[in-house]
């Protein structure tokens, strides 16, 4: 049973709607019975102990798990009213709408400019002036423009870790996604860069749905509007969504004893 207190409810055919969703890695049943609406244009954090299925679920939202052999799903996961696992859905097109940032910054071994222009080029944007405008706007939105505007030809890998992560965010923003998935985006960068990425998330949230997996409880409390707590209670059994609701309420008065025990540090 999942506890929902003041959990968001999307309008029909809008945003991400998940119902009775299960996921398997081959024979291993990893996730079961996940039902939730992800709040549109808000920040939602997924928390839980290691191995609780939060990253697995995150990767289901843009079908990244399709790249792993033997995985399969059941249940419903809709984006704006369309089942993202329906036949005929192009995962590449889905991933343009649902961008992803990983734990380790992963810029291409190309120039800063080419990193950001890569996506739009794939989408058919060829005019130099258009690409210039997209690169500048994306880097500005990622709060990186001021630091790199005079060195756009520098290799992306030459930037600091925090700058690389913001470059990756700029690369995602260049293709104008509706949803941004972030899998522990701040765990490999320094505190100042963490602050910049968090500020950036707050700036982006009004125009896109952001979902972040984090092990940092304080970060989840600071930045997210809603929070989902996942847990695999017994080894070998599938993980599930234990509690979902307003972050402030879950941190001050969780409904489920397991959530209480986890966020007060009594296990996990």
């Amino acid at each position: 049973m999942t506890a929902y207190r003041d959990a968001p409810k999307n309008e029909p055919k809008q945003g991400i709607h998940v119902k009775d969703f299960d996921f398997w890695y081959g024979e291993f049943h990893a996730l079961t019975g996940v039902t939730l609406d992800l709040a549109q244009n808000k920040i939602t954090s997924f928390i839980g102990p290691s191995g609780c299925g939060k990253s697995t679920f995150l990767r289901c939202i843009n079908r990244m798990n399709d790249l792993i052999d033997g995985t399969h799903t059941s249940g419903l996961m809709e984006l704006d009213g369309s089942d993202i696992y329906a036949e005929g859905v192009d995962p590449v097109d889905l991933r343009r709408r649902v961008g992803m940032i990983f734990q380790q910054p992963n810029p291409f071994p190309k120039s800063i400019y080419e990193n950001v222009a890569f996506g739009p080029r794939l989408q058919g944007v060829t005019a130099k002036s258009d690409l210039d405008a997209i690169v500048e706007e994306s880097l500005k939105r990622a709060n990186l423009w001021k630091e790199v505007s005079n060195q756009l030809n520098k290799n992306g890998l030459a930037l600091s870790g925090g700058q690389q992560q913001r470059l990756c965010i700029a690369r995602v923003l260049a293709v104008q996604p509706d949803v941004l998935l972030m899998d522990e985006p701040c765990s490999a960068i320094d505190p100042t860069s963490v602050q910049k990425v968090e500020d950036l998330m707050a700036e982006l949230a009004p125009e896109m749905t952001i979902i972040i997996v984090t092990h940092n409880m304080q970060q989840a409390a600071r930045i997210s509007d809603y929070m989902a707590f996942f847990l695999q209670e017994h080894a070998g059994e599938p993980a599930t969504l234990v509690e979902y609701g307003v972050t402030g309420e879950i941190f001050s008065a969780p409904q489920d004893q397991r959530t209480e025990d986890y966020i007060t540090g009594r296990f996990g």
């Binding site: 409880m217 409390a221 941190f251 001050s252 008065a253 959530t259 966020i263 007060t264």
Partner: peptide, 9 residues
Amino acid sequence: QNPYASDLR
């Protein structure tokens, strides 16, 4: 200690 939940309450 940055307490949460019942600790904070």
